[in-house]
Nucleic acid binder design. Structure first.
Lengths: 194, 194, 194, 194
DNA sequence: TTCTAACCGAGACGGTACGTCCCGTCTTCGC
DNA sequence: GCGAAGACGGGACGTACCGTCTCGGTTAGAA
């Protein structure tokens, strides 16, 4: 079989407890503090953890915050499958926008911003958030296309950009809100285009 | 701008020369250095200028860089008026994407990122760049709408988001390029939707 | 004349006030804390001074403490000139031992120890303390020799070692005290040997 | 040392081998590294030994180094007994100075320095090195005194200080070397004084 | 022409956070 | 049940910039 012997690492194993204390502490800090106010020093203090431990697990603040977001966002947004592309989109885009409006937005903006400055983080951020959500959306579109709810030659990648683009643009620029009307307009636009 | 009745200030006036030295120096620095590597201290040194002089003119690095971009981008992108919405869009979106691909992109990403962390800068950034470009685009769409090239009830704000959203999204995420095909796809999409 | 133009350094001059605050603070700290407990961080905090300011003036803790000792020890020990070598030695060695017994001893031990680990500091320490005191002692012996109170061919350098050697040895080892009997014994020994 | 009746230890016995590996490793490290560069971590790594093992045997670096010195210096300096105090002193002081000049000096300086900062170590250091050597010297002087080679009322403790004081003083200060001339001068001085 | 106020460069200031190093302790394994 | 390996909480290190201040020197309009 492929069950190769997992060699247990020598030495004291990493403390899951410490890692969780950090995530909890950062989550708590983010309730009252802006992302930009976070410091490794402050996080270590708040979590009752040594700075080297912090650096042993994460290379920078952005990565910690990303883990916090990952943990809590796991169950936030599912992949609806109602049998109708329009309902699916309304649900999915709606969930996305609601999540961003209700608090996650500020942090996601910060992470996206951080990704502009750090290529290493950018890659992980995109893999962890952007790509997986994009994949979900595209799968959803694909099902719709298979049912004939989109044109045969529809460019699903472009449709995904036409969906997520305006969402991020509004989130980052704040010139308009991610309200229900916006969700409907975007959905209508994609459906009609197909 | 429209400053009239300048009270004749006592004392030595601010040195226009120093300001230009700063902009030049930052422009030069940005050829070889990432935006994130810039420091007020480094800029002052490179420009042969005292730190207080820097702070007298600009509150932070982002503002200096924004001024650099403003200066050179002034004539980059005009507002085409060919009489056809499609040609106008192809030209305008094409110019925009070309500009972003040819070097301005990296810095614009950084400025957009910075705007996520500093509300004061965000406001100026949006006024200086985002809003004016948006206004140009919307004027262009308006002319098209007046000629009947769009539906009567077309939501021009939304169309602008559907145009700029994907551009920024691709710029910030880097998952796809802002090439000619993209320009044509976006243009086609807007035209068809109208 | 030799009065060459003293070019005033550009920039804000160093704050004499900050320097004095540091020396005062360290002096105060040394009342209640062992030399080894001192930290740059603690000194900066106690003096209300930034760490970089500390490093701008001194390369390490030993140098700061040395300056503290220099400041207060300036008038401690004079160079007696009574006309008699024996009285001179009794006074000079007595003053030296009393000074070391009354509190300076612990710190001088620490500085001497530090000098074993840091060549740069060692050089300054020896110039500032050891050599100048040695020079004073040798001058004193020289006067005695000139008066015929020592043998003509007496090796004054060796006599200085025979005087300071036991003092430092007892100070560093603590196996015997630097009391009046010791002062007399050393003095008698040098006189008799001459 | 005098371990009799070794209780058949349950489990894995303590590794005498580990202890020796440490001493060997530290000896090796000291060939290329200054005492001050040694760290518990580095020693553990170099000796292929766990840090807790290190702490189980020694409380600090100084103690380890002291054991290294003890081990190799055991046979360095004997207690001569030629029947003449002068020859005995020339041999004994000469051996001492040669040993210090040939490499042991740097480390002995460091240990003496360390003893200024750590009372616990100071006590052991003095017992292990200073006192035993002093006792040897004093025994040697005593034999001389018994033979009438010193004055009857000679203060042997003081004579020991007059011998070791200058040696340590020169070693720690480096203002003069511990050469043959020095050995002869010190010897002559003690003999003449008696 | 002199005065004087705001400018200029330079750079030190009090701070804060950085990322690293080592401490001495602990926890988990394999021997 | 010892011993290696190494993660842990902790804390000081020396550095880099921050944004402010204090200098001596310059510059140009007002007196």
């Amino acid at each position: 079989m492929d069950r190769h012997q997992v060699k247990p690492a020598p030495g004291r194993p990493r403390s899951q407890q410490a890692m969780e204390a950090v995530l909890t502490a950062v989550h708590r800090l983010l309730q009252t503090t802006a992302y930009k106010e976070l410091t490794m020093e402050g996080i270590a203090k708040a979590a009752g953890v040594g700075k080297p431990t912090l650096y042993r697990w994460w290379p920078n603040i952005a990565s910690i915050v990303m883990d916090v977001m990952k943990q809590q966002a796991h169950h936030d947004i599912g992949a609806p499958d109602t049998g109708s592309l329009e309902s699916d989109l309304l649900l999915y885009i709606g969930d996305t926008c609601r999540s961003l409006t209700q608090g996650a937005g500020a942090i996601m903006r910060s992470l996206m911003a951080e990704a502009q400055f750090d290529d290493g983080f950018a890659q992980i951020f995109r893999e962890s958030f952007i790509s997986s959500r994009r994949a979900t959306l595209i799968a959803l579109l694909q099902r719709g296309a298979a049912r004939g709810e989109l044109q045969k030659d529809a460019d699903l990648e472009l449709l995904a950009d036409l969906c997520y683009g305006p969402i991020w643009y509004r989130l980052l620029n704040g010139h308009a809100s991610l309200d229900e009307a916006f969700v409907q307009a975007i959905t209508a636009h994609i459906i009609m285009r197909g």
